[in-house]
Simulated assay, not measured.
Amino acid sequence: MGISDSTYRCEKNGVLRLLAAALISEKYIEIEAGYYPSRALYSKIIKQLINGGINMEFSPELINFFNEIREFKEFHGGREIWFRGQTHDFPLNSGLFRPGKVRSLAQIKQSEKSSYRYFLSLGHPYLNGEKDWELLFIMQHHGVRTRLLDWTPALMNALYFCVENPGDQVLWLLNPSALNYLNGLGTTILTLPIDVSYEELLESTTKKFLTAAIHPVRNSARQVIQQGMFTIQGDSNVPLEFEWGGDIITRNILKKIPISKTLEQDIKYFLQLSNIDYFTVYPDLDGLSKHLNKRIYD
C-alpha cells in the first residue's frame, strides 16, 4: 500500500512527524512528483524511530510558548499585540541605526536625508507622486535603510520569520499603544495623516523624531498579506529594548521569547499544518519561484 500525500515529505531542516509515522507502518512509501527523499534518509528515520529519537507529539514547550503569548496579551487587557520574528537575536535597531561606518546621530541623520532625496529624485519615474511618510514606507518596502522597523499583528507570519533560517531565533512581542503612551502620543496607534510631516522632521535642527508605533499605508500585496506595521525609531540612537532606560521591558510593554531547537521544530511543523510557506508570506512571482525551488529541489 503506497502513500501519496504532499504532507509526507522530507524537508531540508527536518522530517515531518507524519512521514515518520507513515514509514514505521508501511513497507514502502510513494512520494508525489517533485519530492525525492533518499533511501539513506529513510533508513535514518527508521533508526531514530526504533531508538525513540523522534517525538510523535508537540512538546510541552510549544504549549507553554503559546500560553506565554496569551498571558502577554491578557496582561494588556486584550489590546492589539504586534510580533516580530528574528532568526538572530540582534538588537531592535531599524536599518538606519544598525552598526556600520556611520555612527554619530548627526552622521546618521545626514545619511537619512541623502537617501530620501536621492530616492525621491531618481525614483521619480517609478513613483505615483508619493512623498513624505508614504514615500518612506515605499523606501522601507524596497530595502532602503530607514528608521522604520517591521512588525505584524499576525503571529503566524512572525513565526515564519523566526524559523525561516537557522540561528539564535527570538520572537518579540510589543504593545504598540502602550509604546506611544510612553512618548506622550496617546493610547492609539498612529495613522496618516499625522501632525508633523516626515520632511519637516528631517530638515529641522530643533525638532526630534520620537519612537512611535504607526499603521502604514500598505503599498503592496506583500504588506497586505504580512499585515505589516512599523515602529519609528527615534533620535535616542539606542535599540528599542533600551529606550527609557529599559523601562519598556520592565513594564512588560516589550517582551522577548527565545526559540529553542525543540520549539523551532514544533513551530516548523505547526506552520506546515497551517500551510504557511514562502509563497504565502511573499505572494508574488519571486516568492513563488523561491517556494518552488525549496519545495522541489532543496
Rank of each mutant, 00 (worst) to 15 (best):
G245L: 08
L201F: 11
N67G: 11
R117D: 06
Y198R: 02
L120P: 01
A106K: 12
S104C: 05
Y8W: 10
V144Y: 03
E26W: 01
Y126I: 11
G2Y: 14
P91V: 03
D195M: 00
E32V: 01
E112M: 07
S59I: 02
K256D: 15
I232M: 01
R145N: 07
A213N: 13
D298P: 02
T87M: 09
Q110G: 00
L271I: 15
P283H: 04
G234C: 08
G186H: 06
S6P: 05
D266W: 12
G53L: 08
A154H: 12
P239L: 09
F279V: 09
H215V: 01
K101A: 09
L263D: 05
Q265H: 12
L120D: 11
V238I: 15
N183Q: 11
V238Y: 06
Y8G: 01
P283A: 01
Q265K: 10
Y42R: 08
K73T: 03
L288M: 13
I108Q: 07
F209L: 13
N51G: 11
G77C: 14
F65E: 04
L171M: 02
I54T: 03
F83W: 04
D286I: 14
A20M: 02
Y118A: 10
K290P: 05
C162M: 06
A178P: 13
N237S: 08
E32T: 08
E199V: 09
N219C: 02
R84T: 07
T152L: 07
N55S: 04
W172H: 02
L19C: 00
W172C: 09
S111K: 03
T146M: 02
E112I: 04
T188L: 10
V163Q: 02
